[in-house]
Computed example of a mutant assay.
Amino acid sequence: MAELETRELEYFIAVAEELHFGRAAERLAIAQPALSKAIRRIESRLGVPLLVRTSRHVSLTPAGEALLRHGRHALNAVGAAARSARRAGDAQARLRLVIKPGGDANLLSGILAEYARTPDARRVDILFGGATDRADHVRDGRADVALLYAPFDDLTGLDHRTLAVEGRVAILPVGHRLAARDELRLADLDGETLPRWKGVPRAGVVDEGSGPEVSDVPQLIQLIMVGRTVAVLPRSLTEPAHPGLVYRPVVDAPPNQMVIAWSRLDQRPLVASFVEAAVAAGGFRDAQEAA
């Protein structure tokens, strides 16, 4: 089987994401007939149908779903390789750190101060990502390191060190049946409407929710306040407290880890120095290090 070119992957991914040839062609700035011809050529080369086409609908076949999933990773890898090569040859390269707004567990200032004291410290550019895409920033080379929450964030392809461990807290509207309790267990939340995080199949604490889809904590807070859902979050993401909500520790929820993560392929001293400074600032040592 012949390999696909990156341009062909870009064409297919655009169609697979839009599920509409017209919108995909507009996104790619090419003519729709040329795009349709390119997709047929890919299917012919692979020997499998990738799309089901009707006059009103386009959908992915199982083969198409597989190519979309792996094709995204392949394009990310190509982009990351090019960016890494440029940065490796740049003696004045800055370090780029991606975080979630308000999602640093109050560690960022200490980390930056600790790193500034290292002899080879460079300028650190702070990038802001969404609730679920910060790991992708590192995988595709847009960022060098990220502050992530485990097990919530997908760490596939990344190395990481733990900076802090914290408990989880249930957020409930005032007047909720559980609001009067001092602490909760996961079983107490059985039957509750839980949110679905956009881009995350499982929330990392309990099974995927059946409630409204949310992209970030502010959206979630609004929905909890009007009684549409409840949620379990790392303690640091529940601050500051919002009037009209109550916060109760969930004593048997798996603890959350704040981690510093970087690409397994990135062995630059620039990154290693920042990681060590972050670990020192966090003051956490995992069990293996402490033994």
Rank of each mutant, 00 (worst) to 15 (best):
P212G: 01
G103Y: 06
R23D: 14
A38S: 14
A146W: 03
G103K: 03
R139D: 08
A80F: 02
D286Y: 08
V251I: 14
L68C: 13
G130A: 05
V15D: 04
P254L: 08
I42Q: 03
H57Q: 10
L107W: 12
V279L: 08
L155V: 00
R123S: 14
E18F: 06
R142T: 13
A241P: 15
I13Q: 02
G64I: 00
D266Q: 00
Q219V: 05
R168S: 10
D252C: 06
R45Y: 11
A113R: 13
E18M: 05
A31D: 09
R142P: 07
L97R: 09
R122L: 07
E239H: 13
A131I: 10
H242W: 13
R168G: 06
S215Q: 14
P173C: 04
A241D: 15
L270K: 05
P33R: 01
L75D: 00
L148K: 05
A203S: 15
D207G: 15
P62Q: 10
S236G: 07
R285C: 13
D136A: 04
P49G: 05
V217F: 02
A170C: 11
D153S: 04
D154H: 04
G211D: 01
R96H: 09
D140A: 04
P255D: 12
G191N: 07
R134T: 08
E192M: 00
T6N: 12
N256V: 10
A113G: 13
G47M: 07
N76I: 04
R161H: 09
R7E: 15
L75V: 01
L95W: 08
R264K: 12
V174A: 11
V58N: 01
L148Y: 03
R161A: 15
T193Y: 02
E166H: 07
L68N: 10
P101C: 07
H73A: 15
P255A: 10
V15M: 02
L237T: 06
P173A: 05
L68Q: 13
A93S: 06
M225T: 15
R86W: 07
G227S: 08
R202D: 15
S210C: 13
V271M: 03
P212I: 00
L178Q: 00
E289K: 14
A179L: 02
